[in-house]
Amino acid sequence: MNEEILIAGFGGQGVLSMGKILAYAGMMQGKEVCWMPSYGPEMRGGTANVTVIIGDKTIYSPILQTFDTIVILNQQSLIKFESAVRTGGKLFYDSNGLKTLPTRKDISIYHIPATAKSAEMQNLKIFNIMMLGGLLEKLPIVNKKFIEQGLYKSLPERAHNMIPLNMEAFSIGANIVETIHEI
């Protein structure tokens, strides 16, 4: 099976790079991967989203209307994409900045308070990798050891000294993810 994932939030939140790390990790595990960004005017401020498909089957369409899993990082994305999770699928969100919370009962919902936790650690840059940690805790589609390798591949060399901190954030994410309800 292929897992079809959408990550949606603000430009600058690390949405695209979060998807990229996931895609790299999947590829290094020998899986088929596809990373399809929204590259339009929205990346110059406003909303940004990325589709990541990982699995063992040939990947057909990178353009999708519904998804197995959606990661929601802002209010606009919640409004736009809550209904796009397939029945039985998973929705992950960070409640920071959300005025409303997801309400669906036919999907599993998980909360990852990554903004609050990374602010507590005084480093908002590790927010996205923390989200990724929470996501993979509940959706183990790639092995964690490949995330570290994925970071080496997707980050420029000057940022490689940040990788241990990122891996720490990844583990914290896995610990702070809370199940709102599961089906």
Binding site: K20, A23, M27, E32, V33, C34, W35, M36, P37, Y39, I59, P62, I63
Partner: peptide, 10 residues
């Protein structure tokens, strides 16, 4: 096209 140009695959 812009989609294939911008997307990443193996």
């Amino acid at each position: 096209d812009g989609a294939i140009g911008q997307m990443m695959e193996k």
